[in-house]
Design a protein around this nucleic acid. Structure first.
Lengths: 143, 143
DNA sequence: GGAATTAGTTGATTTTGTCAACTAATAGAT
DNA sequence: ATCTATTAGTTGACAAAATCAACTAATTCC
């Protein structure tokens, strides 16, 4: 490992931070904030789950999550279901309204990537994906 | 381009967002915030430059940048140099104190990547870098 | 010359996020 | 069984990051 290696990784990180930043901005047209969108995503994909699970998955502050969930509850996007094993824990489920909202955000996010990829020929798309998967595979082996 | 392509890119983006988030947290031990660190970086690498150039490079709000620069000026990290061609524009330069501060942050950032890469054999490091550079090259051709 | 635009500052506010204190429940030690 | 320590989640208070509007002085454009 050389200093050049480090510099090159950092260069990529600066580059990709920019890409992700541009994608994140696309969400701002939505009724939901970025953190809210992330919570919705987590609720849809690990359904049903507890607050603690979301906190872990998103590395989110419990106070902040509590507020977001409260807001979701008021808007009818989630229901809380008591658990028998631990009275302090509720399982959070998306309502059908919540699922509709998730679908809207999900579609918008996918459309953003679509717009990005549409500018590339299919071979380049496949190439990017292969590289991405390779990176993920390698970095998944470290902390 | 298929829906699977889109899903795979999104998967990588979620993955890499996490990696970057963990790296960003490492900066929090520093006297400077993340946005400030970014401005310092930009000042060092595009030296001298105007406020507008930083705004563009970092996609940062001019009001926010103005405050950061004001803080830097008070701390003696930068000097402003009037330009002859346009009286509204100043060129911002790091002082030697500013450069020292940049060096500290820069070293800390590199050490973070080093810690990440140290967990990998050299072949994997080279592989990751090759993949990163390939992605960057391809995505640099789109908006 | 005058209107429109721009560079950067400042005021005010919102959003995101953090930390502490709390209550009720559970786990662990005695 | 009892008591202490820990935990799940809520709420209060606050800080940091970010945004938006209004502004002044300078420049550009018609």
């Amino acid at each position: 490992m050389t200093a050049t290696d480090v510099a090159q990784v950092r260069d990529f990180n600066r580059f990709y931070t920019r890409i992700l930043g541009l994608l994140d901005k696309g969400i701002l047209n939505s009724e939901f904030s970025l953190p809210e969108a992330r919570v919705l995503y987590e609720l849809q994909h690990h359904q049903p789950c507890s607050a603690s699970e979301i906190i872990l998955a998103l590395d989110m502050d419990k106070g902040y999550l509590s507020r977001i969930l409260k807001s979701f509850s008021r808007k009818g996007l989630i229901i809380l279901q008591a658990t028998e094993s631990d009275a302090r824990v509720s399982l959070i489920k998306l309502t059908s309204k919540g699922k509709l909202e998730f679908d809207k955000i999900n579609t918008a996010s996918s459309n953003q990537i679509k717009q990005l990829l549409e500018q590339l020929p299919d071979t380049k798309i496949k190439s990017v994906i292969t590289h991405m998967q390779a990176i993920k595979q390698i970095l998944n082996t470290v902390n």
